[in-house]
Structure formats: C-alpha cells, structure tokens
Design a protein around this nucleic acid. Structure first.
Lengths: 239, 239
DNA sequence: TCTTAAGTTTAGAGTAGTCTAATAACGAGA
DNA sequence: TCTCGTTATTAGACTACTCTAAACTTAAGA
C-alpha cells in the first residue's frame, strides 16, 4: 500500500454498520441504490448521481467507499448492487422516513405533499427509540401516507407486484395503491382530485397516440394524462 | 491577500444568517457561547472547547470563523461575546431544543432525564414549521421539562434572577425552578425524590464544612448535598 | 523587572464529503 | 474489427470541520 495513491486519498470506512451510525450521506446513497435496484437490477453509477443530484465523480467515489465497507457490490463500469448489509441499512432508513411521514400527517397536521422534505432531514437524526415510540403511538402503521409499505423494525418489507395505471389493460379494474412522495405538485393535484390510495378505477379506454387513459371512478369518468398514469402504482383487482 | 496564509486556509463563512442555515456545528458553538456568557461575561476559548469536548485549537479556529461571520466579537487572547446576530441564532436553536424536549415528554412518553440527547440531534434537523406546529400542539409552552424558559419565535427569552439552593439564606423559602438537562443521573435522582420544578422548600440549616443543606419540603425534612444544591436553581419567595 | 505557568493561537495534517477537467472503458454501428 | 459516443473512473483541488505539536500572549509571582 501507500504506493497506489489514486488521486483521492484512501481511507477505510469506519462503520461496523451493525447499527453503528452511518453518515447521513451514506444513508442517502444506500436509499437511492435501493430505489434503483428494486428488482435486483444493478444500479448504474450515473443513475445514482442523477437521483441524488451530485456529479458522476462524486457518486463514483462514494460507490468505492460503500463497496469497501461491504454495503454494496461494485463491478467497475458495470454497476452496483446492495449486499444484505446494505439492504438492511437502506430499509432501516426507509422505515424511519415512512414512520416520520405518517406521524407528521396524523399527529401534526401536515399534508401528504409536504412531509417528504421534512422526513428527509429527520430520518438521519431520530433515534431508534423515537421512531419506535412514534410507530407505537400510531398503532404500527404498515403504509406511509402515499401508500408505500413501511419496513418492519426487523428489516422486512412487503413486496407486492404493482403496475402503473399506464400499463393496466383496458377493461381491468385496479386499486390505486401507491405514489411517489417526491413531487409535491403531483400530490397536491391528486389530493384536489380526491385521488388517494385505496381508490378503485376501471380502465375504460386508452388513447392511441397521447397515451391518455379514461377511467371510471365510482360513478364519474375521469381522464388521466400519460405522465400521471405512469406514476400511479396500482394493484389489479379481480372484479 | 493571498500572501498572508496563516496555516489554515482561508474561507469566508457563507451564511447570510438571516435564517439561512448555519451548520449544526456552528449552532452548537453558538449555544455553548450563549451558555457561557449568560450575564454578558466574555467566554474564554478554552471554556468553549471544554463545554463542546473539542480541542482548544478547534475552538480557536471556529471562533475565528464565527467572528468573521459577524456572529461573535472576538478579542484575541481575551475572549468572545455574541453579537446580536449570534445571540438571535443561539436563541433560535435553544427554542428548538426546548420545544422538542417538551414535545417528547408530553406527547411521546419520554422521561425528563432522557430528552436532552434526542433534542440535541433533532434541533439541527427540524424545520421552523415543525417546531411551530409542535409548540402550537402543546399550547405554546413557556418552560421546558427542566424549568428552563423557552425563547419565543421572535427571539426573546424570559430573564429571571435565580439562585442556587446552595446560595439560599438559612430561613428563606425558595421555589425550585430549574435544573440543567444534561445530567441524566441527577435528573433520575430528582424524579425519584419527587423534587421537580415548582417544589417549595424552606432552608432550615446549612452544615458548616460539608455544605449539606437541610430543607423542609411540605411536612418532610430532607438533606440535600452540596453538589446537588448547587445545581438546583431557585427563586426566592416572599413567605 | 524577570521568569514562568497557564491559556491561546498558529502550523500542518487528516477526514468525509463536494466539484471540474481529463482519461479510460464499454458497446453499438459501420 | 475499428471507431465513436456514452458512461465511468481517476486526477487534483476545495470546504468544513477535526486533531497534535509548536509558538506565542498574558498575567502573576519572585
């Protein structure tokens, strides 16, 4: 060692990771990688950079560190995948984030379009004790305000196959289950339209070229644009 | 410039400070300086280092930066004093800390000996909006669980002259008003002894050499050691 | 007034990130 | 198989802190 100084100085990550604190930055990277590799797909360094809004070299540098720490597996120029340790850490942070979101909505009068940013900061600062107290006070919720499943404190997460409304077959009845918490405008729009998780819709028609979808909600008929339809995660329902 | 490079590289603090985020570290330093210079006394660099458990050079370096940012006035080798801007920032953080402490106790079942550490981390992460929601939910509390006054959102703080029980005159009746939140053991002991802020005590006797104080609380007589007595901040009461 | 101890600051280096610019590797089409 | 565009990584610098060791100030005692 010592001879191979590749530009950035080298240091070993100090985390034992058991639950010994990862830095907020590391937690954010792990969450991003988790999101990108939902189906076991490898995440590209560039996608990580894009999601976290950092430069590609920054992401590349962090990937190296994470890999050295045993939190991810990295095949240079190929991509990245969470190890069991990394996945555990990511789900740990995700649990915090989602419990916080529920708490802010249910106990402090936040709107569902307004909780993401706050939770994003708090998830790195709350103790495990506080999160479990919040969870208990809320009756151990299983979903966050946007319908996303909350990992258990043991690190398990419900895995349901959802399709976007954009993908649903004409004639199918689906239940709107989940939407990303990251776009406040979209969330406000959905709230205005009374389109919240749990709503059942029947796909009546799909427009050929603009991708617009017509659905029946209750007795009303509604037209959903392509972009929005692609963001609404739904479960196919028998009837 | 450029020629006078005194070891540490130079950079200008980027904070406009209006309410633009100071780093957590800066907030901690300002809080420490506020505590040390309660009565307008200058705070020594070494005391700041001691309170924050950092080395003297670290404190000295930060003092320089804080001074450049207009948050403190620094006379080298003499000491440090908060500017109006610095005081505002310190009280801002203190408000967050104390609101959080009340919230944790009243809404999440925390014990008063257990809130300091949690609040210490959260105070840097919560938004102003969240703090004001918590404050409103609590009915705008004026004191934290340890009796410390909570600065208003405008940055005003109640200034009451308190004496420690150790200083109270024999024969005097005092009301226990406030105790530091930083020593969990002491707080647990006080809770066990049912000695909480609001308790009235009459000083019956002060032992000559060990400083032990005998007080009457209600109908009971209690002996309070010197160290503990020095930590109990009291208000002198007429009767 | 001189010396010395205590306390403060400077010197210089390390850590965990950030960035831009330059280089290297991959993979798709000719 | 070669070339070229895209993507990834390395090079090197900067920030906001941390530290130890050394130098400097101040205040107090002889």
């Amino acid at each position: 060692m010592g001879a191979d100084d590749h530009g950035h100085r080298e240091y070993v990550i100090n985390a034992t990771v058991q639950s010994a604190s990862l830095t907020p930055t590391v937690e954010d990277y792990l969450k991003a990688i988790y999101r990108l590799s939902s189906q076991g797909v490898v995440a590209a360094t560039g996608d990580i950079a894009g999601l976290l809004d950092v430069s590609a070299p920054s992401a590349s540098w962090m990937v190296k560190r994470l890999s050295e720490a045993g939190l991810i597996e990295h095949v240079p120029y190929r991509g990245v995948r969470l190890t069991r340790k990394g996945r555990r850490a990511a789900l740990h942070t995700l649990r915090r984030h989602r419990i916080l979101e529920v708490y802010l909505v249910k106990r402090l009068g936040y709107e569902w379009d307004d909780v993401h940013e706050e939770a994003e900061r708090l998830e790195h600062a709350v103790s495990g004790k506080l999160i479990e107290r919040m969870a208990a006070a809320l009756g151990d919720p299983r979903y966050d305000p946007h319908g996303a499943p909350i990992p258990t404190s043991e690190g398990e997460i419900e895995q349901v196959d959802l399709v976007t409304l954009a993908e649903a077959a004409v004639g199918a009845t689906v239940e709107f289950r989940q939407v990303s918490d990251e776009d406040p405008d979209r969330l406000r729009y959905l709230a205005e339209q009374k389109l919240t998780p749990g709503t059942r819709m029947t796909v009546l028609e799909r427009q050929r070229f603009n991708g617009t979808i017509t659905v029946r909600v209750g007795n009303a008929t509604r037209v959903v644009g392509q972009e929005l339809a692609g963001a609404l995660l739904c479960r196919e329902v028998a009837a």
